[in-house]
């Protein structure tokens, strides 16, 4: 695995001067994933925070070839780019190996782009799809997505006098991707660069479709101080709210925290969960803990069965 010193000699895929919020995690995901590639990369991004803020004409923060098409079609768009590349390679017009990486937020991946992603994975294109998952539609103002956790306050499922934020458990997209039987699926966080770049390196070493789901705290939508982006992600890992694991050819490998902390440790630092701590909402927190435990145990069982 490449050391930070070694990574620092590679091309930074992004320049400064983009318009993401101070402390935004999305560019950190991009940098850690793409710098893991020794080979040239070509990027497609779904519409979203990352895309609008990095490519305001005539300013592009991408130093690598970049294409944006629309919101729900990063998977399909990359399918076309990759097919073109395979054609050029077949005809001897391109020789160098290229890693194709598509980025989508959770809205563009879990929800509106799921069909396009599923199709691209099923067809076996040689590409890595990375979901920079901040658990809501942040670009349009913190609306709930299929990735939003139960209880979180969003603008389309707000906490109010009667309802306490999102009423449904989040969709487990990573397991949906595992069910595609693609060679490599992983969950990671920002805040653990060595794990994330190792996973990206692993993904780049495998031909075929790969998927990595990266939890990326959003200071605007989650509500915390901008310097805590990485720390908060690590809290999600330590509480097993966001398990960090990989599935290579169907075999599970889980990174287990030294000590599994209670979910409260994760929830309490965020404005989006603040209402859960009001008197009367104790059961909601207990429910969340129970569901986190259930999913964690299920995952452990999957690892155990091999």
């Amino acid at each position: 695995m490449a050391s930070l010193k070694e990574l620092s000699t590679r091309k930074d895929p992004l320049t400064g001067g983009h318009r993401m919020c101070p402390g935004c995690g999305a560019p950190i995901v991009v940098r850690q994933i793409l710098m893991a590639s020794k080979d040239p990369v070509v990027v497609v991004s779904a519409t979203g925070c990352l895309e609008v803020s990095t490519t305001i004409f005539p300013y592009s923060a991408w130093t690598v070839p970049f294409l944006h098409n629309a919101f729900e079609n990063a998977g399909a768009t990359m399918s076309g780019v990759e097919a073109a590349y395979q054609n050029l390679k077949k005809k001897g017009k391109m020789t160098e190996h290229v890693n194709f990486v598509a980025f989508g937020g959770d809205g563009g991946t879990y929800d509106i782009g799921l069909q396009s992603l599923s199709g691209a994975m099923e067809r076996g294109h040689d590409m890595l799809y990375v979901c920079y998952n901040n658990e809501a539609y942040m670009n349009t103002g913190v609306q709930r997505s299929g990735a939003t956790p139960m209880g979180a306050n969003t603008t389309t499922e707000p906490a109010g006098k009667v309802l306490q934020g999102k009423r449904e458990w989040r969709k487990d997209l990573t397991e949906i991707m595992v069910a595609h039987s693609i060679p490599y699926v992983a969950q990671g966080i920002i805040g653990n660069w060595s794990d994330l770049t190792r996973k990206a390196e692993k993904a780049f070493s495998i031909r075929g479709p790969k998927f990595i789901n990266v939890l990326q705290p959003c200071r605007l939508g989650w509500g915390y101080k901008p310097d805590s982006t990485l720390e908060l992600a690590r809290r999600a890992y330590e509480t097993c709210v966001w398990p960090v694991y990989e599935v290579e050819n169907g075999v599970y490998k889980i990174s287990k925290p030294k000590e599994k902390k209670p979910v409260v440790e994760y929830l309490k630092g965020q404005d989006r969960f603040r209402h859960l701590f009001k008197p009367g909402n104790e059961k909601l927190i207990a429910d969340i803990q129970a569901e986190v435990d259930r999913r964690w145990n299920l995952l452990l069982a999957k690892e155990a069965t091999k």
């Binding site: 768009t77 399918s79 073109a84 054609n87 067809r123």
Partner: peptide, 27 residues
């Protein structure tokens, strides 16, 4: 010599066409 992408919808068909055409080939 075509690389044929049997997509899962017309939306994806046109999206893949845009990707491939932006890549520089005849689509």
């Amino acid at each position: 010599d075509t690389n044929f992408v049997a997509v899962e919808s017309e939306h994806s068909a046109m999206s893949a066409c845009v990707g491939a055409s932006a890549a520089g080939v005849r689509v």
